[in-house]
Simulated assay, not measured.
Amino acid sequence: MKKVVTVEGMKCAGCANAVKSKFEGVDGIQNVTINLDDNSALVESETDVTTDALSSALADTGYTVTSVTRA
């Protein structure tokens, strides 16, 4: 499954790496591609990863998931 996750607060490569690392730690996620131009992450997973799981992954980072759509 592929989802596009919009993340508030990503502004630089360091931010992108932090978000990517957090998302890669979520069970089932196989690949994460960050797009700083539109503050999004393309998340590819084996199973249907919930919005709550994605939001929880960023809970202590200062970044916020603002939307999740299927890609």
Rank of each mutant, 00 (worst) to 15 (best):
A57H: 12
E8N: 09
M10A: 09
S45A: 15
M1E: 03
T64S: 03
G28F: 08
A16V: 13
V32G: 06
G9K: 04
E8F: 10
C12R: 06
F23M: 08
V7C: 01
V49N: 07
G62C: 03
D27G: 08
S45C: 12
E46W: 09
Q30P: 11
L54H: 11
A13K: 07
S55K: 14
T6E: 04
C12H: 12
L36N: 05
A18F: 00
T61M: 11
S55G: 13
Q30W: 02
V65W: 09
S67L: 03
G14T: 11
N39K: 10
A59D: 14
T69A: 10
C12T: 14
K20R: 15
T47S: 14
V43L: 02
L54E: 00
A59R: 06
A57S: 13
T51F: 02
I29G: 04
T64K: 06
V32C: 04
V19W: 04
G25E: 02
A53P: 04
G25S: 02
G9V: 06
A57C: 11
E8R: 02
G62N: 00
T61H: 05
G28V: 10
V65P: 01
K11V: 08
V32M: 07
V43H: 04
D48A: 08
K2F: 02
S55P: 00
D37R: 06
S67W: 00
Y63H: 00
C15A: 10
D60Y: 02
A18P: 00
E24M: 15
I29H: 01
V26C: 13
V7Q: 01
A16N: 07
T6H: 14
A13Y: 06
A41E: 07
T33Q: 15
K2M: 13
G14Q: 10
D60P: 00
Y63T: 01
S56P: 01
K20D: 05
V26F: 12
C12Q: 09
Q30Y: 10
V32K: 08
M10F: 05
D48N: 14
V68M: 01
N39H: 11
K3W: 00
N39V: 03
S45F: 09
Q30C: 08
T50V: 12
D38L: 01
T61S: 13
V49H: 06
G14M: 14
V5Y: 00
E46C: 10
T51P: 01
N39G: 12
T6M: 02
N17W: 11
A53R: 09
S21N: 15
L54A: 05
G62W: 01
E46L: 14
E44V: 12
L42N: 03
D60C: 01
N17E: 15
L54Q: 09
S56Y: 13
N17P: 08
A16I: 03
E24P: 05
